[in-house]
């Protein structure tokens, strides 16, 4: 089933001569459980696309349906709550709350809902992420890779419909990058978690089930990743 449906999405800045089309009539869909990579050079509009998918930036025209809900028909409050429960966002620069420890940062979406976090779920995620011995640490006591893992945890804790990752390995060395991608792929497989990753790195894109490439705000290619590796 289609967990994400994007219809004729456009985003422009400025008017008249200075008008810039960040996204130009983009349409595609993603099935539940798919791992999609969106690739493109810098300035191609992929970050803008991700922000709109995450409900964080408003499109100029077009619709985005997540799990059947037209997210831009929701008012601000409802959108915030929708985002809380259905969308997990992972950024390049981790964006953790500096005064909360690892455990608190991960359970943040649930806490906002006023819910108690089921211990088992937290433990499971923490174990998978390899953070079991760092639960009480503050972000500034963690390395870059560890911080990114915390933000993955935060994105997954609520079992959202889609997880959006914006250059999740952009700030990490190659070992950490590999680890992060493995974690993402593992959760994609294990929890059937739909995963959309923005990247400019081909190697990462090739690990996905499907690659969408964007250039100058338009979709150039949208196809299943081939296993053609250089042997």
């Amino acid at each position: 089933m289609k967990i994400l449906q994007v219809d004729h999405l456009s985003k422009s800045y400025g008017t008249g001569e200075a008008k810039v089309m960040a996204l130009d009539d983009v349409s595609f869909s993603v099935d539940k459980g798919e791992f999609v990579a969106i690739i493109g050079p810098s300035g191609s509009g992929k970050s803008t696309l991700l922000h709109i998918l995450g409900g964080v930036d408003k499109p100029t025209s077009g619709n985005v349906y997540i799990d059947g809900v037209d997210i831009y028909s929701l008012n601000e409050s409802k959108l915030a709550i929708f985002r809380r429960r259905q969308i997990g966002l992972i950024y390049q620069f981790y964006n953790l709350i500096p005064v909360l420890n690892v455990s608190e940062n991960i359970t943040l979406p649930l806490e906002l809902d006023g819910q108690m976090t089921p211990k088992t779920r937290l433990n499971e995620i923490v174990k998978t992420l390899g953070l079991s011995d760092r639960l009480k640490h503050l972000p500034n006591e963690l390395s870059g890779g560890q911080q990114q893992r915390v933000s993955i945890g935060r994105a997954l804790i609520n079992n959202p419909a889609i997880v959006l990752a914006d250059e999740p390995t952009g700030n990490l060395d190659s070992t950490n990058s590999k680890e992060i991608m493995e974690l993402l792929k593992a959760s994609n497989k294990k929890y059937n978690q739909t995963l959309i990753v923005i990247t400019h790195d081909e190697n990462i894109a090739l690990q996905a089930d499907r690659i969408i490439s964007i250039h100058d705000g338009k979709i150039q290619m949208n196809e299943v990743a081939s296993c053609e590796r250089l042997i």
Binding site: A80, F82, R83, R84, R85, L112
Partner: peptide, 11 residues
């Protein structure tokens, strides 16, 4: 960050 994680403006 809080807004992106889904905190409402009231909160």
């Amino acid at each position: 960050i809080l807004a992106s994680v889904g905190a409402t403006s009231k909160q």
